[in-house]
Structure formats: C-alpha cells, structure tokens
Design a protein around this nucleic acid. Structure first.
Lengths: 336, 336
DNA sequence: ATGAAAGCGCTAACAG
DNA sequence: CTGTTAGCGCTTTCAT
C-alpha cells in the first residue's frame, strides 16, 4: 500500500466555506492585511489548520504580477566557495523572503544554458549568479529579461559583487617571487569570459618582474581536469619550483599529483591556491591561499539584490571587495 | 542609470496576437501537442523569439493542477555528502524535469521547519529530503501533504533510500577492536530521530565485545560542535586511543583537536570517519572511513521519486544500500 | 487545423 | 469590517 494522501490540497475557498466568510477575508487574514476582526482571523486560522490549508505561493505571485522568489545559480556545489556564497546570501535575505530557488550546475557541463533558463521560467524576481560561464554579452542579454547580480565575477553593465582578483593574483605571484622562485607556473581555469583575471594578473606580474609566465589551463573546473594540468606541469622537463593555481581545488589536485611523483611540499614544490578553503587550512595541508571572503561576497550580493528589487532604476552596482593572501607552509624559499 | 529592462514579459497572448492566431495554438506549439501545422508552428516560434517570450512554468502548473517541480532539501551544503547526493539526484532526473527547487538548511538551524514549508508552498510535486532533522512522526505528517523521499535516513511509512548505517558503524568499530584498541570512543551527532543508528550500532558492538561504550554527542552538525566534543574526549583523564566519529566532518575536527594537543595520528590516536569524503582521501589525511555511496544514494532517490510520481499508490519504497569500510592510515594497532 | 470559453488559486480594486 | 468582481498566464474540454 502506498501512503495515504489528501486528494486535493485545501484552497482559500475551502477555508472560506468552512468558516462561512468570503475568500477575500481568508486572503487578508493570511497576509495579515488590516481590516479583519480578530475573531474572524482566529476562526480562519483554526479552519485552515483543520483543513491543512497551505498558501500557494505561485498562484499568489501570478495574481500579484510580481515575482517574490529569488534565484541563485551556483556553478559548482562541490567547491566550498559556492557553498560559502550560498550561506552569505541566505544570511542577508530577509526571513520573510525564504523563497530561494537554487540552480546548480555541474562544472563539467560547460556553458549550461538550461540552468539560468530554468530560473527564468520559474519566474524568479532576480537571479544571483555565482560565476556564470557564459560570455559577458550573453549575461547582459539575460539581465534584460530578469535582473542579475553577478557574484565573484564582474560583468560590465550588470550588478556585480566580486573580489579584486587582479590584486589577489598579484599578491600570490609576488609572494612566490619574493621567495626567490623563478620557475613559477600558473595552473589556470578554462578560458571563459570573466574567469581569466587571475591568469592575466599572474602573467603581468611575472613579466613586470622580468620572468616569463607559464600558464597551463585546465579543461574545465573539475578536480580531474586540475590533476591533468598539474601532471603536464610536473612532468615537463623544466619542472616549476612553484605553482600558483586558479583555486584551492586545483591546488589540492596539484598537491596530489606532486606527492604521487614523490615530490615534497614545500621542499620540492611551493604551492599557492585561491579561496582559503577549510580543507586548505587543515593540519598537514597548510595551503598558502588567497582569501576572497566568499561568505561576505554572498551577503553583499544578497543586499544588492534587495536594493535592485526595491529600486529597478538605481545605478548599476559595482562592489569590489579586497582579498587577502594567507601565508601557510605550502610555500618556502626556492631551492638553491 | 539602471539597466533597461522589458516592462512586461511577453505572454502567450502577445505571441498569439503577433502571429494572428489564438492562444491555444501557441500553447499547443510550445508543448508540441499534435494539431498544429508546421507553418503555424514555425511562425509561432519566430514570433516568440522576436518578443522574447518565455513560458511561465508556475502558471502552467496552476492550470494543469499538477505540480511539475521536485524539491530537494539538503541539511548542510557544507558537507560534501549532501553535495554528492545533489549530484546523484540531478543525474537520475529526466532532462525535461529541470525544475529542481532546492532548500538548504544550515546545520545550526536545529529543526528548521521553514525549509520544508517553503518547498511545500512552492508547490513542488515531491520532496527529496536528505536528512531532515524532524522526528519520524513529523516527517510522516509532512508526507501526507506532499510525497517525501527520505534520503540517508530511513523513516518508517515514508519512501526511504539509505545506507545500512548499522552495518557501517559495526564495521568501523570492529576494525578498531581488531587493532587491539580498548578505549574506543564515539563522537556522535546530536540526538535526533533517525540520526542515532551509528551510535547505537557502535554501542552494541562494543558491548558485544565486552567493552564499555563511551559516546560524546556534538551539539549540532557544525565543525565547531565537533571540535568541542573532540576536546572533551581528548582532554579527559583516560583519553581514548581511538575515536569513531559520526561523519568525516567530525573526524577532521577531531584530527585538528588532536594535533592542537600534540597528539599524532595514528600513533597516539586512531581515527575512523564516516562518508569517505574527498578531503579524507587526501595525502597526509588518509582517513579511514565508511563509504555510504552518497552519489548513488542520490540517484536511487531520484528514481524512487519518479516512481512515486508516476504511481502514487505503489508500495512504500525501502532501499537500503550497503556501505563499505575503506581502511587508510589514520588507524593503527593500539599502543602497548 | 484552429478557436472560444471556463477555470486553476490567488490578489486587488471597489462597493457596501 | 466584509463581500463582489475582474483578472494574472496558462491548459483544456468542446466546438467549428
């Protein structure tokens, strides 16, 4: 036998009929709009409870011609950063607005247009997007359909809340340079719009220091892709003595690749990640990394989203937070 | 200046007017129902594109008196296991059904009734819930309102897809016993319905071996709570030589607490986690752990959800997967 | 192959 | 304080 279930969920009309009032009163009572006597209200709530009535948020939105849900797109839920962003967003969203619709991509999906489309078709009022893979131009197009707040990636012409990747990557690279490294490689992400700031900053910093940059991009944002790129780096004839990776996930992949080859960290290889993830902070991992303050990114994005909702014509937001290099013991002076 | 936005999203009527046909045809065309000529269809799609028309999924559901979205509740997105479950669910859901509405709790929230309520009010057709914190009875009540598939926690009377925690915890405990440990403690989770199987299995296994069980429960599922419980264990006069934790998150917390006290793993302390997370597999962490096959749990849950949707009267599902102890170097024979 | 009309559950004027 | 009415965007008989 299957579980027994109510045949038809109760509606406002059912409650109204039960109490002997009109639907309007029920509607008012549930949004405690003024103009319903306390007794009536009480009677309505009682009946609602008895009937198991639940408001239908979708129908309400439809009638109100106004979308109350906020959509959140996360590129890769397996990456701590995105979980942190989610936490931040949740923190800054008013309690009442608990209609947070999530759309999560798989990093391997590539451009994954469906993810945002599903949010649009769910008629969310605004989309907070943590690193869409689409080109800037496409993001701007989408933003014409529904307001978008781009998180952790600046998109010109679209509300953006991000960290200063240029400064972060420069600090990381300069840290390795100051340790005397010369063969410093960069394990980068795939070459998408808005995802190359760290790489370019690394390359510029290297050139400014009179060094030749050496970037190997991963095919996608998975750990496997990171490991493949790391292998290419570590198996090359002139192996780098230091690697700066696009994120901690890649740094950990490189770390595994290094140990698999019998290389010690930081003895044979210095490693700098990006994200300052919990994993990197563990004893024995002690990963030097750039903290982009993901939780704060999320909470600021939530605030910006609320602003945009309340004021569609406000100037476009451009919030750039300052990252912070956290030095641990995965980096050491270059070997003689 | 704010971004310019369409004033009013295009509707089926707009498209119909543009083409010069009735709304019905547009509706049919978009669900490619039979009975629309190819030319008309083409004309409709062209016009839709021109107008930027997007179907309104919520309105469609309303009219169809049938809910197409599936809701997914995850207790703690910061725990890899839940991210894996999400991946599994996504894998097993038909492409068409990309309306996955997520509700994520914070582990600290406690019972967090809002999380499921928001899913219900979003009118999802079914809820896949990865470890609700509510009592069994309450889950059964909720399941009367909307079908629920409980993941990673069996709830009698409700579709459940879970791992055999009893067997997993027994294997973990027996592994430590076989290494000669006698002071084996358990760092458990908080005492919620359906979350105590591992603890009870540990306690029974200990008693069966003639040992006295020693459980310290964490206050909640956060890393901090794990660390506090670990501290209590490690600072006690008769410090355990081995700890079996409720999950990997707690194991890592215990690991940090141990190192902070100058204890070596596995020299001074053997550690067994639960989840076989990526982090635990890292070089230098090498955590012995029980794998509950979270991705598979998710994909089976997705399949069960589809079955339930197609056949509301089918017998209640009870899918129990078999976990697997993965031995690594965080465990060693008990010191003399 | 196409259209008219009713209704899904709810909100929002407008009356009383 | 309470009720009536007209939609919101879409699906779905039932006609034509």
């Amino acid at each position: 036998m299957g579980p027994d279930r109510q045949l038809r969920p109760a509606t406002q009309s059912d409650v109204a009929r039960e109490v002997g009032v009109s639907r309007t009163l029920v509607s008012f009572a549930f949004r405690d709009a003024p103009g319903v006597s306390d007794e009536t209200k009480q009677a309505i709530f009682d009946a609602a409870k008895r009937l198991g009535y639940r408001p239908n948020a979708a129908a309400a939105d439809l009638a109100r011609k106004h979308r109350s849900a906020v959509g959140l797109y996360l590129m890769d839920i397996h990456n701590e950063v995105y979980a942190d962003i989610l936490s931040g967003v949740r923190m800054s969203l008013p309690q009442a607005r608990n209609r947070l619709i999530l759309s999560v991509s798989q990093p391997i999906d590539g451009v994954d247009p469906g993810a945002v489309d599903s949010l649009i078709e769910a008629r969310v009022g605004i989309i907070i997007a943590a690193t869409l893979l689409d080109p800037d131009e496409r993001v701007r197009e989408l933003a014409q359909i529904v307001p978008i707040v781009s998180v952790a990636r600046p998109v010109p012409g679209v509300d953006s809340v991000y960290s200063d990747d240029d400064a972060g990557a420069r600090a990381a690279t300069e840290h390795l340079l100051s340790l005397g490294h010369t063969r410093i490689a960069h394990l980068g992400g795939p070459d998408y719009d808005g995802h190359t700031v760290r790489r370019r900053s690394y390359e510029k910093t290297m050139r400014d220091a009179g060094m030749v940059p050496w970037t190997v991009p991963a095919d996608d944002f998975t750990q496997d892709a990171g490991q493949r790129a790391a292998a290419e780096l570590l198996d090359s004839v002139d192996r780098p003595t230091a690697i700066f990776t696009h994120n901690d996930l890649f740094a950990l992949a490189a770390r595994e690749a290094a140990y698999a080859r019998g290389l010690a960290i930081p003895g044979d290889l210095s490693l700098v990640g990006y994200d300052n993830s919990r994993t990197g902070r563990l004893h024995g991992i002690d990963l030097t990394s750039v903290d982009l303050h993901a939780v704060e990114l999320g909470s600021v994005a939530g605030a910006v989203a609320m602003d945009r909702l309340n004021n569609p014509d406000a100037p476009i937001a451009d919030e750039r937070l300052t990252p912070e290099l956290v030095v641990r013991s995965s980096t050491a002076p270059a070997p003689m």
